[in-house]
């Protein structure tokens, strides 16, 4: 079992499982956010539930933060080890002849997503923690929609969000189906899974782009 923890296969399985966990989180985040386009009340109600439910706050949220931190740290560790494994670089390297840009540049799309998470935490998560646990404010279940819309007033912030979602799409285009290969799933359903990956990797980030632009242009 000790070898399993440090082996190359264990690392790739850990990357895959943490990635799939984050995909699940991303999906539920999207479905919560999209309600803001249709109903401010529904968005407020769901946000209030997520922000005050003890299980979400003190069980799901720490697990999520651990998953995010683990995925990023493991990503950097693997990148450093993999660069070392090459040793001397090729003078002539034709990567596009045999692999997609997305698959070769997961570290760069990942770094953009990491930078985006920093901005996203600064915009929403940190003010929320301060509001709830540092400052004493009366419980207000109607504040979420207005706070969110105010953030998208800035064209710079909206633009940064849109760019980040493009990189998220690039990351998902390789990462989603690749995770299944890592955990040993490669069979007659894999072709369908790749099709689903393309649809998911385009539609979910595109949805996030739509939400950001919708609130920017509906100030």
């Amino acid at each position: 079992m000790s070898g399993m923890i440090t082996s190359s296969i264990a690392r790739k399985v850990a990357m895959a499982l943490s990635g799939l966990f984050l995909v699940l989180f991303l999906t539920q985040h999207f479905f919560i956010n999209i309600t803001s386009v249709f109903s401010a009340d529904a968005f407020n109600a769901i946000s209030h539930y997520m922000g005050t439910n003890a299980v979400v706050q003190f069980v799901a949220q720490p697990i999520l933060i651990f998953g995010v931190v683990f995925h990023f740290i493991m990503g950097f560790v693997l990148e450093i080890r993999n660069r070392n494994a090459r040793g001397i670089s090729y003078f002539s390297y034709n990567g596009s002849a045999n692999s997609s840009w997305m698959s070769r540049n997961m570290i760069w799309s990942g770094i953009v997503i990491l930078a985006f998470l920093g901005l996203h935490f600064y915009d929403f998560w940190i003010p929320e923690i301060v509001h709830k646990y540092v400052e004493s404010h009366p419980d207000d279940s109607t504040r979420y929609f207005g706070e969110m819309v105010a953030k998208f007033e800035s064209p710079v912030r909206t633009g940064l969000y849109v760019i980040s979602f493009v990189f998220l799409a690039l990351h998902l285009l390789h990462g989603f189906s690749s995770s299944f290969q890592s955990i040993g799933f490669n069979n007659k359903y894999s072709k369908g899974l790749k099709g689903f990956t393309v649809a998911f990797a385009i539609l979910i980030p595109l949805g996030f782009v739509f939400i950001a632009l919708f609130h920017h242009f509906n100030q």
């Binding site: 190359s8 494994a85 692999s99 997609s100 690749s178």
Partner: peptide
Amino acid sequence: FGNCTNTGACEI
């Protein structure tokens, strides 16, 4: 050797 990241270059 390095870790596999499923680029698929080896198969091609």
